[in-house]
Design a protein around this nucleic acid. Structure first.
Length: 438
DNA sequence: TCTGGGGTCCTAGGACCC
DNA sequence: TCTGGGGTCCTAGGACCC
């Protein structure tokens, strides 16, 4: 039996999410920015056509933004996360063999399903996601994940494909490989692309026909797998049950430079709280904590500084208060006065299941009490959908907070931010589904 | 003035042990 | 002055992904 993989990818996902709730944006140029309103992380097709690159700093394209009246949004991860869930739930109806690969992508394993016409099936999926959730998607089919990715990419380029391209047994496969630049291949980043091009390998077709020994030498086993995948030999299976995290990180740039130990300490405490919440959501505990601080790496004047401190905990924990205590100790060791800090972060490692934590003879914390307290904390914050309860160390006003100056309402997860619909005397004909609500 | 955040896997080399 | 070999574990760094 031959493998059939599909890759479903939401088009310009963050932009599409904004458009679902603000149809005025349809057909207009739209940008969504990264954290701290720093970089461009999502662009509508209109913006791509204006030559605005992925990941460019917003201030560098300010002129284009103003000249073309581009609509600009801060990231609204709460909204995007919820919309993603809706898309995935809809896709799950088509097959049980699904891997949620990222917030806006899913692999489907359709091997062994007697679909006579994959293209038709793809159009059905597209239609349903659009109708139920309001998000446009593109679908590529291939004999390996890498080929499904490539098909998806080509489907986006071609208007003729109408969002679906099947390359499983296609007579156009060779042509498709020839038309794909080597850096567009999944697994080939800018470094490898440069080296490959130097060696005369410019397209996916060239890569597919490259010498195995040379590839193994230059790119290791990972590179070799990519080449095999391009030949239609599937090296990667679907990963339906996500492996538990190996580490959990929480780091943020500051909305403005931070200089005092007090503010750095607050931010580190706040980031530690976030990381600890993630930890508890996955029922894990951390045995190692690392705190890092850094100045602006683009700043040419002023002292540049980067440092981190790792601490091993006597007992693995997911208690916010306890983790904050270690984090604060760590940050006090690396804080250097006279620097303008741009970013701080917390990394948790040595993760173990919370019910398999090894005790310690000298442990003086009441673990049961701590677990109870954390449950209450999480429950209250879940009900109020914000960090209503938090540790005083994290500060009250948090003047260093990351910027989100143009965030749209969290339409689907906050009662006080629901979409407002003006109803005139006539009967309202808008149904919740029109807004992605169910 | 303004430049994101959170992950994964692989490999080479050093520490350590017998 | 002579000074083995093989295994494991850990870490840092480099590549990649969205």
């Amino acid at each position: 039996m031959k493998n059939v993989f599909a890759l479903v990818d939401c088009n310009n996902f963050y932009v599409s999410c904004e458009r679902v709730f603000d149809p005025r944006l349809e057909g207009r140029p739209v940008i969504v920015m990264s954290n701290n309103d720093g970089c461009v992380v999502a662009r509508s097709n209109e913006v791509k056509a204006l030559g605005v690159g992925m990941g460019v700093p917003v201030f560098k394209v300010q002129e284009i933004i103003e000249k073309h009246g581009i609509e600009v949004f801060s990231s609204n991860y709460t909204l995007y996360g919820d919309m993603s869930r809706r898309v995935m739930e809809t896709l799950a109806q088509f097959t049980p063999d699904m891997e949620i690969y990222s917030i806006d992508e899913a692999f489907l394993d359709l091997s062994g399903y007697p679909y006579r016409n994959l293209t038709e099936y793809g159009h059905e999926m597209r239609k349903r996601v659009k109708q139920w959730v309001g998000i446009p998607v593109t679908i590529g089919f291939g004999r390996s994940k890498t080929l499904a990715k490539m098909a998806n990419h080509l489907a986006k380029q071609s208007a003729k494909a109408k969002g679906v391209l099947d390359l499983t047994d296609s007579p156009y496969l060779a042509e498709a490989l020839r038309r794909t630049d080597v850096e567009k291949v999944w697994g080939i980043g800018s470094r490898y692309a440069k080296r490959l091009r130097k060696a005369g390998i410019e397209t996916a077709w060239d890569l597919r026909n490259a010498d195995d020994r040379w590839i193994r030498q230059e790119m290791g086993v990972v590179g070799l797998r990519t080449v095999h995948e391009l030949r239609g030999i599937a090296c990667y299976d679907l990963e339906t049950a996500p492996a538990p995290n190996k580490g959990i990180a929480s780091s943020r740039s500051f909305g403005r430079p931070v200089e005092t130990l007090e503010e750095i300490r607050e931010s580190v405490a706040a980031y530690t709280s976030r990381a600890a919440e993630k930890l508890r959501r996955q029922k894990l505990a951390a045995g190692v904590i690392t705190v890092m601080v850094m100045t602006n790496r683009f700043d040419t004047k002023g002292p540049r500084y980067f440092n981190y401190q790792t601490m091993e905990l006597p007992v693995a924990t997911n208690d916010t208060g306890e983790l904050i205590r270690y984090a604060v100790q760590a940050v006090e060791k690396i804080y250097r006065p006279g620097c303008r800090y741009k970013k701080a972060g917390v990394l948790l490692d040595g993760l173990v299941a919370q019910d398999k934590v090894q005790g310690n003879l000298f442990d003086d914390l009441d673990r049961e009490k701590s677990a109870k307290l954390m449950r209450v904390l999480d429950a209250v914050n879940a009900r109020t959908a914000s960090d209503t309860l938090r540790y005083a160390t994290a500060g009250l006003k948090q003047p260093w907070r990351t910027k989100f100056q143009k965030r749209s309402p969290r339409y689907t997860t906050r009662w006080d931010e629901l979409l407002r619909v003006k109803v005139e005397k006539k009967v309202c004909t808008a149904y919740p589904t029109d807004y992605g609500l169910r």
